[in-house]
Amino acid sequence: MSKELKTGIIALSIIALGIWGYNFLKRQDVFQSGARHFFVEYDNINGLSEASVVTINGLQVGKVDQITFNTDPEKKGTLLVRFSLENSFEFSKNSVAKIYPAGLMGGQNLAIIPDYTGSKALSGDFLKGEIKSDLFSAVGEKFNPIQSKLENVLVHVDSLVMGINQTLDKKARQSLNRSIIGFEGTVYNLNKTMRSVNQLLEDNKVKVNVTLDNTKKITEDVSKITEDLAKAELGKTIKKLEGTIDNVNGLLTGMKKGNGTLGKLVSDDKLYTNLTNATKEMEELLREMKLNPKRFVHFSLFGKKAKPYNEENNNNNVSNDK
């Protein structure tokens, strides 16, 4: 074998090894001829790179071959990702190619979310693309609305403070400071009063306990009295008392109307007048019997007659014998 032939063979071997090494670094196997190729369109690949791993249900089944800008004028600016699958696993065209974080250290991989409804996906078909946010992106997405709201709040607070400064002059601010100082003094005095009350309660703890015990005993006695009253059939007694009162009211009503002897005595003026006159005559008779007993009991042997009744003497309480 000539020297030139050996040199050519060595050169071709070096070139072949270089091509193989380059594709190996890109995770492309030049000896694999049965791989299937699929395409996905993204507005943003979020750091996905060529030679990134392609997985199905966590199993590595391929790699990203190429990432280029879409040449379609209507889709200008979108990115076209071409990836190959070395696995014969079958799925439909409705499956999703989702970009997801490879780990906390960075990097992105491509996961096929298989769907089995619809027609089978063949090499060269386009799949639907999605992006799964990583931890920091998710935190950023959640924090962005909060940040904007916080900025708006700070702006309003700044405007409020400026408005207060413009509204309150120096004297008003001094007055506000004095009010705050006075409020602080009030709080201090209130705390001092509360400490005094606590000390008073502590000093009179025994008396308070005795008072509470007495109150409890009184409450128990009242409860017992109430129970005794309930057992004493107070309702029946009240009903009887009501009946008695009704009878008295009826008696008083009859007396007022002049019914019965007592009613006639109370309401009949003539009977009252007669009774008054009889009482007066009885009084005069008793006085006459007292002053002139001889007119009623006479034992004279000589036939001397008693003096007749003298009304004037009787009224003056004087005997007729004088």
Rank of each mutant, 00 (worst) to 15 (best):
K280W: 09
K120Y: 04
I45L: 00
S2L: 11
T117S: 11
D115A: 02
V96W: 06
T186W: 09
G21Q: 02
T276C: 04
K240R: 03
K76N: 13
K93V: 10
L286W: 07
L252A: 03
L104G: 11
D213C: 02
F38E: 01
F299Y: 08
G107A: 08
K76P: 07
V208M: 02
S267Y: 06
N214L: 15
L190C: 02
G8Q: 03
V40H: 04
D321L: 05
F69H: 09
R178F: 07
I245H: 07
K205E: 06
S175C: 03
L252P: 06
V40M: 05
N314K: 02
N109P: 01
L150Y: 12
T279P: 01
Y116V: 06
Q60M: 11
Q166W: 10
I113L: 13
N314C: 09
N313E: 04
F136N: 11
V161C: 04
A232P: 12
L251E: 06
N314L: 09
A111Q: 15
L262P: 04
M194Q: 14
G250P: 05
N204W: 02
K6S: 11
D213P: 04
V40I: 13
E141C: 02
A102W: 09
E50N: 09
T226V: 04
A278Q: 10
S223L: 03
L17I: 10
V206L: 12
L275V: 08
I99Q: 01
V318L: 00
L25Y: 15
L275I: 13
N94G: 02
V266K: 04
V30Q: 05
R36C: 02
L229E: 14
E41C: 03
G106Y: 10
E202A: 09
K240S: 10
K236P: 03
G118N: 14
Q28K: 13
N209G: 14
K3S: 11
K231S: 15
N277S: 11
I245M: 09
Q60F: 09
D213H: 08
K294V: 04
G58E: 13
G8L: 07
M282V: 01
N46S: 12
S300N: 15
K231M: 15
K307P: 07
I225A: 14
K280H: 11
